[in-house]
Computed example of a mutant assay.
Amino acid sequence: QTDEPGGELTPSTTIDQRAVQQLALFTEPNVDGNTLIGYDLRPRFLHTRASKVLKLSEYEDRGDKLFELEDGTVYAIQPAVLDRGKTKVAIFPGTRESLVEEAIVGFGKQGEFNPATGRAGYVYDSSGLKVFFTLYQLYSTMAKSKKQYNYRELYEALRVLKQAGHYTGTQQDFGDGKLRQADGYGSYISDLVFVDHDTPDEESVKVDKFICVYLNREATKLILDGKYKLYDEELSMEMKSPIARYLYKKMIQQMPYNPDNIASAMMVLKQNAIILQSG
């Protein structure tokens, strides 16, 4: 903030009270969960049976995964480039990463994070919206939903969420006859850091580090603006089909809620469009 035009910018430690109220609603204990309007319905993950992992040379030949929907909107998914042993590979975010993202949102709705208790939760300050949890908590949440991933796989999924990107917009020919994305990509999470726990010997917290995930700016803004609807992320994670999870969020976001006459609610779906939109 600055006191006058052209003045020096200084960090603001004041938190918008409206944002605090939204966060309280976002983590109200009596609600089921949260789905971000629009953001959660984009084709941001690949759920095909084909491998999500390519050799770097293969990815350089093929490029990003592109989706063009019926309305002409173009989406693209960019992989994370990581080391597996001595080999660099391109890993596209898939079902594993989508489930981890849901678990992170579930951790955030548990309330404000308190390192003394070790319970997962969120922190909102001048640096943005962050979610704290342990790798064991992530493993347990996934196992509870019958999604079996070991610690190495879950840590890799977090790195993919940090480095991979998604894009929506138009394509542009830069002079070589090839269509490319004209704008930048947004990562799924802005940052991933490990935070030391000062007193790991406490009986209640048997861990010396917490994982801190910074939600990306778009997701943070949607949460603070109240652009989400309630859903049960545990139920969603238990669904075996990614298409079923997509339809669950789509119906909650787009179907009118009429508690007095549920039978009157109707949504027309196109099979091929849904398969494409869900990734």
Rank of each mutant, 00 (worst) to 15 (best):
E8P: 11
T10A: 06
I15M: 05
Q21Y: 09
Q22D: 05
A24P: 04
N30C: 15
D32E: 09
N34M: 08
L36C: 03
I37W: 12
Y39F: 06
T48F: 06
S57D: 14
G63M: 02
D64C: 15
D64P: 07
L66N: 11
L66M: 13
L69I: 15
E70C: 02
A76G: 09
Q78C: 13
A80I: 04
P93D: 00
S98A: 06
V100I: 11
A103I: 13
F107A: 00
G108Q: 01
G111R: 00
G111H: 00
A116Q: 10
G121E: 00
S127F: 11
G128K: 01
G128L: 01
G128Y: 02
V131R: 03
F132P: 02
Y136I: 13
Y139F: 12
K144M: 13
Q148T: 13
Y149K: 13
L154E: 08
V160W: 01
Q163N: 15
A164G: 04
G165S: 05
G169M: 02
G177F: 00
L179C: 06
Y185G: 02
Y188I: 05
V193Y: 09
H197P: 03
T199F: 05
V205F: 00
V207Y: 00
C212N: 02
L215Q: 04
R217K: 14
T220L: 06
K227A: 07
K227E: 11
Y228Q: 04
Y228S: 08
Y228R: 11
K229I: 14
E233W: 11
L235R: 08
S236P: 11
S236M: 09
E238D: 14
M239H: 04
S241G: 05
I243D: 03
R245K: 06
K249I: 08
Q253H: 10
Q254M: 11
A263P: 03
A265M: 12
L269S: 10
N272T: 11
I275K: 13
